[in-house]
Simulated scan of single mutants.
Amino acid sequence: MDRALRHVVITGACGGLGRAMASAALARGARVALVGLEREKLDSLAATAPDRCAVYTPDVSDSEAMQAMARDCMARFGVPDAVIANAGVAGGFDTAEASDLAVFRRMLEINLLGAAVTFQPFLKPMRERGQGVLAGIASIAGRRGMPGNGAYCASKGGLIRYLQSLRAELRGSGIAVCTVSPGYLRTQLTAGNRFAMPGLMEPEVAARLILQALAEGREQLVLPRRVGWLSNLLDLLPDAWHDAVLLKQPRKPRAGEAGATAIPGLGASPVGGATRAVSEPPSEPASR
C-alpha cells in the first residue's frame, strides 16, 4: 500500500542524509518541517520552497523544545504523514578514558533518546487519525559491537530495539514503524573514517530509497542490501574470528582527534534558551 507523504518532519536536516531526504521530499511536493541546529543551512534549504517549509532549531533531546516544535508544526501543516528521526552523531570511544563517558552520554541522548523525544508529541495525533509513519535512522553498526566504537554501536543497537518495541505496540493502529539501517554514506560523519567502508553510498541515492520505503509502508530497510548480506555473513563467524577481522581496521577518531566530527552539546546539559524557540510564524497561515 502506497502512503502519500504530503507532510514530513525530518530531524538532522542540516546536511548529509537529512538534507538529502528533505530535498527529495520537497521534490515530491511535500511540506517539510526542517529540524536541526544550524539555522543558516536550514534557511537556505527552506528558501527553495518557502511556502512548504518550516524551520526549527531545538535540541532533539530536549522534550519541551521538541513538543513546542511539534505544536507549531501541526498548527501550520496538520498532523504529519511521516516523522523521520534522523538526527545523529558519531565518534570513537575508549572506556579507559574518563572524558569519553561524556561522549557516550551525549551520543545516547541524541541517537537514542532523541528518537523517542521526536516521536512522542506526534504519536497521539497520528493514532487518532489512524495513519502515519515513524522512521528511525539506525545503522548496520547497531547489529554488532565494533572495537573503538562502543558508544555509537550501543546507541544504534538500542535504537533498533526501541523501534522494534514501538512497532509491536502500534500493530493494527495504522501507524507504520520503519527501521532504516544504512551502511556507510558519504557524509560528514564518515569523512574522518580511516577504515574500509564497503558499499559507500551517496546520501541522495539513500534518501530516494528511504522515502520510497516509507511510502510503501516497509518496516525494515538496509542500505545497500549487499552490506546487510555481508553483515549477516560475518555474524556466522565465531566471536573471536569476527573480532580479529575488525581489530585489523583503524579505529574511528575520538572527540578531539584529527578527523573527528563535532558532537553538539558535548559536556553541557540539554540546550535551552535560543534552541527552545521555534521559527517565526509565516506571514500567512499554511493550508493543510
Results as ranks from 00 to 15, higher is better:
residue 267 G to L: 08
residue 38 E to T: 09
residue 275 T to H: 15
residue 153 C to K: 07
residue 180 V to R: 05
residue 219 E to T: 10
residue 15 G to A: 14
residue 52 R to G: 07
residue 27 A to T: 05
residue 235 D to S: 15
residue 142 G to Q: 05
residue 80 P to K: 04
residue 233 L to F: 12
residue 174 G to M: 09
residue 279 S to W: 03
residue 90 A to E: 04
residue 142 G to E: 03
residue 265 G to C: 09
residue 271 V to M: 12
residue 255 A to Q: 15
residue 142 G to K: 02
residue 95 T to S: 14
residue 254 R to Q: 13
residue 245 V to L: 15
residue 145 G to A: 13
residue 212 Q to W: 07
residue 166 L to H: 06
residue 207 A to Q: 04
residue 211 L to I: 05
residue 74 M to V: 10
residue 279 S to P: 02
residue 257 E to I: 02
residue 121 P to S: 05
residue 284 E to N: 09
residue 170 L to V: 01
residue 19 R to Y: 01
residue 287 S to N: 08
residue 96 A to M: 13
residue 57 T to D: 03
residue 97 E to M: 13
residue 14 C to N: 15
residue 174 G to P: 08
residue 175 I to Y: 06
residue 135 A to E: 03
residue 191 A to M: 12
residue 132 G to N: 08
residue 250 P to G: 13
residue 37 L to E: 10
residue 125 P to I: 09
residue 249 Q to L: 11
residue 55 V to A: 11
residue 189 L to E: 04
residue 60 V to R: 00
residue 252 K to Q: 12
residue 242 H to G: 13
residue 232 N to W: 15
residue 18 G to H: 02
residue 27 A to Y: 04
residue 63 S to Y: 00
residue 201 M to K: 05
residue 288 R to F: 09
residue 207 A to R: 06
residue 241 W to P: 01
residue 18 G to D: 03
residue 79 V to G: 03
residue 224 P to V: 06
residue 74 M to R: 10
residue 5 L to S: 05
residue 268 A to D: 11
residue 38 E to Y: 04
residue 137 I to D: 03
residue 248 K to H: 07
residue 94 D to K: 07
residue 215 A to R: 13
residue 148 G to Q: 04
residue 72 D to Q: 13
residue 98 A to M: 12
residue 95 T to H: 14
residue 198 P to K: 04
residue 107 M to Y: 02
residue 252 K to C: 11
residue 182 P to Y: 03
residue 269 S to D: 14
residue 48 T to R: 13
residue 125 P to Q: 13
residue 110 I to S: 00
residue 239 D to A: 14
residue 61 S to W: 00
residue 59 D to Q: 09
residue 149 N to M: 14
residue 208 R to G: 11
residue 48 T to S: 15
residue 166 L to M: 11
residue 162 Y to C: 04
residue 274 A to S: 14
residue 252 K to V: 13
residue 183 G to S: 07
residue 57 T to M: 06
residue 85 A to N: 06
residue 264 P to R: 05
